[in-house]
Amino acid sequence: MRAVEASTGSTGRLSGLPPGSRATIVGLADGAPPSTARRLTDLGFTAGTPVQVVRRAPLRDPVVYRVKDYDLCLRRAQAAHVLVRDAQ
């Protein structure tokens, strides 16, 4: 659990973004379980990294994200731990 850096744009949760949107990762939410936070970091969800919402499964969960040049799918519950800013 790392402190959320001060940011200019409005921050939100990665799980809240619709498919097709892009944003920059600010950090991980304070409430994230430590093991999940560590793994998300290792998977590439680090502060300053651009992220893109690629698509949602037909049943709305899970969701494919593009981060650090690869596609990874997460459930919304995990994506909710990732804080983002400057969503477009």
């Binding site: 793994r39 596609d71 990874l72 459930r75």
Partner: peptide, 11 residues
């Protein structure tokens, strides 16, 4: 034991 997060690469 801890609950593991779900993640899967889409190659």
């Amino acid at each position: 034991g801890p609950l593991l997060p779900f993640y899967m690469e889409m190659p």
